[in-house]
Amino acid sequence: MKTISKFLAISVMTMFISCSSDDDAPQVINEEEVITTVRLLVTEDGTTNTQTVTWKEGVNGANNLPNVTLEESKTYSVKVQFLNESDPNDVEDITEEVIEERDEHYVFFDNSAVNGVTIASGNEDSIDSNNIGINIDTDWTVTAGSTGRNLRVYLIHEPTQKTGSTRADFGGETDVEVDFNVTIQ
């Protein structure tokens, strides 16, 4: 009985000592695949007039939409960028990953609320194995009499198809869903 209680006491002690010794601090993790920022690089065709419009987590929201200003009867080349800025000292460009996996991604610009702006895959777009441009680079054409409103940008992961006119047509998961305000002068 005495040996048993001795054994018990010793094992409890060793158990606690061996386990409660404070190990090294855990390694910090910065989210790797989070997209914190969506950026549109808008260039007026034939000029060097550019705008960089940014939607950033923690800054923008439904009541604070970034603004894209377009002019009637002009065409623009628009590049979209997805960034991970969760660590400001190590900004990651997620666009590269999207381009690498172009078969599984699609950028959908829902312009149904913006009258008079047509959006199509551009010259420098990234083309998937089915010969479909995934809209990383797009050409925007603004016709006369346009009015501006919400432009919703989606990045869709593993869409079930890459043609359609509403979000539901594409299936898949939504990796990005942000709104920009479009002003047409």
């Binding site: 158990m15 606690f16 409660s20 855990p26 390694q27 993790i29 910065n30 989210e31 790797e32």
Partner: peptide, 19 residues
């Protein structure tokens, strides 16, 4: 008496759900 240690793997690239 019990002692328990939880060790999340930092290689996941996702911030730990529980520490």
């Amino acid at each position: 008496a019990s002692t328990q240690e939880n060790v999340p793997n930092p290689d996941t690239g996702v911030r730990r759900l529980i520490p």
